[in-house]
């Protein structure tokens, strides 16, 4: 008997349905086992993270406040209150500034440094130095920079030395300077990570096309613009999204460095939400603000997925 005939005989004997049934049974058996393996992770994630998220969404449609227990249904009332709140509007504007700044500065600086340090002698040392701030907790970084920006602190004294007269700027006390000052600290802390990630991306770019372009007489800018940059696109995109999410949800730095700034509650949506919920006891309204933050984060993630797909197709 040849092979095909043998298989056919076997199939006839057992029956295709039976084989499918067996396969399903095996999978069911494996599913039970798989659930045993997955259950700790599933229980934790669903119980401690996902259920609270649903609860938060539900809360945002209630009237819950202060000492009263869970309140009655309030429709979109909490959401309708937002635009009329001056602190919410300021927080929204500041958050937008944060998002813009966290796209531009860490990426520009990180990319610049990556290109600069790439072929430098002793690059390892420089990379480590630039990266170190990233290991520290944002809380500790905030405390350190709080004193750098203090009225008689490092920055004012430094500017005084350079300009030759007394500088007395309250960096963290005035509307005009507080957000830029904290953004500078954020960039100081995160640019190192961006640089390291981009260096990893750069290292993965094949050398051949660059050498070929070199031989064809392309200059360094052209090589960067038409070869390196497109090949770096996937990494760049990933880094940008990480940076946007970090900038959008920044809290610790604002909490520590903005502690004495009268407008602290409007420094960002995340801070505003904390103040509304934990300082004023407006639990339902605070939940609604959290939902808005969540929606924006979901949008950013969605944009990432779409762009990622597009970049993948482009580079393939």
């Amino acid at each position: 008997m040849d092979r095909a005939a043998k298989d056919k005989a076997l199939l006839d004997r057992i029956g295709i349905d039976q084989i499918a049934r067996n396969a399903r049974a095996r999978r069911r058996g494996q599913l039970g086992l798989a659930l045993v393996f997955m259950s700790p992770a599933l229980i934790l994630v669903v119980g401690v993270l996902l259920v609270p998220v649903l609860f938060n969404i539900w809360l945002s449609f209630t009237k819950w406040k202060k000492f009263t227990g869970f309140g009655e249904y309030a429709g979109f009332a909490n959401y309708e209150r937002m635009p009329g709140n001056p602190f919410f509007n300021e927080a929204l504007i500041n958050t937008a500034i944060w998002v813009g700044a966290s796209v531009v500065f860490p990426i520009a600086l990180g990319l610049g440094m990556a290109m600069f340090f790439r072929n430098l002698r002793g690059a390892e040392t420089f990379k480590n130095i630039i990266f170190i701030p990233r290991i520290l907790a944002p809380t500790a970084v905030g405390v350190l920079w709080f004193y750098v920006y203090a009225p008689d602190g490092l920055l004012n004294r430094g500017l005084g030395l350079v300009s030759g007269r007394d500088v007395d700027i309250g960096w963290l006390y005035s509307d005009a300077t507080v957000t830029p000052a904290i953004i500078a600290t954020f960039v100081w802390q995160t640019a190192g990570l961006v640089m390291v990630l981009l260096l990893l991306g750069l290292a993965a770019i094949p050398k051949d096309p660059i050498e070929a372009a070199h031989i064809d007489g392309a200059n360094r800018w052209q090589i960067f613009r038409y070869i390196t940059l497109p090949l770096l696109m996937p990494t760049l995109l990933m880094v940008t999204i990480l940076s946007v999410l970090a900038g959008f949800t920044v809290f610790d730095l604002l909490w520590v460095m903005g502690a004495n700034y009268p407008g602290q509650r409007s420094l960002a949506l995340a801070v505003f939400m904390y103040f509304e919920a934990f300082q004023k006891g407006s639990w339902a309204f605070g939940s609604a603000v959290a939902v808005i933050i969540g929606l924006v984060v979901l949008c950013v993630t969605w944009v990432q997925t779409v762009l990622q797909g597009r970049v993948d197709r482009m580079t393939r």
Binding site: L49, V51, N56, T249, A290, V297, L298
Partner: peptide, 20 residues
């Protein structure tokens, strides 16, 4: 199954605070 577990990274921390 994987997406269910990974969904734990999608939401911002602010959404966990009050319920937790």
């Amino acid at each position: 199954w994987f997406m269910l577990i990974f969904a734990g990274t999608v939401f911002p921390f602010q959404m966990y605070l009050i319920p937790l």
